[in-house]
């Protein structure tokens, strides 16, 4: 078992004829993901390694029964790409794009709330259920099938944590990058509940960072309704206020969004918080060995 994606996920790639879309479509297919369609307006009728390209998402869905989409299009067109996928009936949309204007995302997110569509990202490396399906740009080989769910606002820091777990012999059920933007689709709280309900997931690792209040909300959900062990790390303990640390969402403003406040709330919800990023895997190992 896993959450959101598995071996039956049928993926449509929006922006598949671009450099990145093409490269990563092949990488995902080589990992074992079923890539069934690509979409690029004006390139319908072509194919890439036998994967058919369509002009519109709705046509692609009709012809191939795709049930998930991954978006590799420039920031100016990404909000529209998400809406197009939702309109075509896709229920899981992964948007990798970094740099979508926040005002555009406010409208998109509000619309998705009423459709039951699940959006991962934007500004995410995507998600992976090791051994089954890779819907993103992460290096597949560092993962190992297993029972720990990972939820993260960051990309390479997630790879670091996966690597620590795999080196310790601990596998992962699903690893989800929720994205580094201020307005995103699925949140820590949504995914914690999905992992809680997944019989094959035995514990979760939450990788947060400064800015916003997603980690504080997660702490509330954990205290109320999560019974599985949770290990957390909050990046940016040493970040100065008022400076954006790379991600659009990672900024401490007006005293809110500090790492210290997030760590305190997570601890009081019973979460094991690693202070050093070198110890995240080890903390989970200690919990599992007890």
């Amino acid at each position: 078992m896993s959450i959101l994606i598995g071996s039956d996920t049928r993926v449509l790639v929006q922006g598949m004829t671009g450099n990145e879309g093409q490269f990563h479509a092949r990488q995902m297919r080589d990992y074992g993901t079923q890539i069934v369609a690509g979409v690029t307006p004006g390139k319908g009728g072509q194919d890439i390694d036998g994967i058919p390209i369509f002009d519109t998402v709705s046509e692609g869905v009709k012809q191939t029964d795709a049930n998930a989409s991954i978006i590799f299009v420039p920031p100016a067109f990404s909000a529209d790409a998400i809406l197009e996928a939702a309109d075509a009936g896709i229920k899981l949309i992964v948007c990798l794009t970094e740099g979508i204007p926040v005002n555009d995302m406010l409208v998109v997110r509000k619309h998705l709330d009423s459709t039951g569509v699940r959006l991962v990202g934007p500004n995410t490396p995507g998600l992976i259920s090791p051994g089954k399906c890779k819907l993103g740009v992460m290096a597949g080989y560092i993962h190992k099938p297993g029972h720990i769910g990972i939820i993260s606002r960051s990309g390479t820091l997630t790879y670091e944590v996966v690597h620590q777990l795999t080196s310790l012999g601990i596998g992962q059920s699903t690893c989800v990058g929720i994205g580094g933007d201020p307005i995103i689709g699925l949140t820590f709280s949504d995914l914690l509940c999905m992992f809680e309900a997944d019989a094959d997931t035995h514990g979760m690792i939450l990788i947060g960072e400064i800015g916003g209040s997603a980690e504080e909300n997660a702490a509330r959900i954990i205290a109320e309704s999560i019974t599985k062990p949770v290990v957390a790390f909050i990046a940016g303990q040493t970040a100065p206020p008022g400076r954006r640390m790379g991600h659009a969402g990672a900024i401490v403003s007006g005293g809110s969004g500090t790492a210290a406040a997030k760590i305190e709330e997570l601890r009081s919800a019973g979460v094991t918080v690693a202070e050093s990023p070198a110890h995240i895997g080890r903390k989970m190992d200690e919990i599992l060995s007890n």
């Binding site: 390479t156 997630t158 790379g246």
Partner: peptide, 13 residues
């Protein structure tokens, strides 16, 4: 990566 960069600062501290 921004997250790993922040985590690296934390590690140093």
């Amino acid at each position: 990566g921004a997250g790993l960069a922040m985590a690296t600062m934390d590690l140093i501290k």
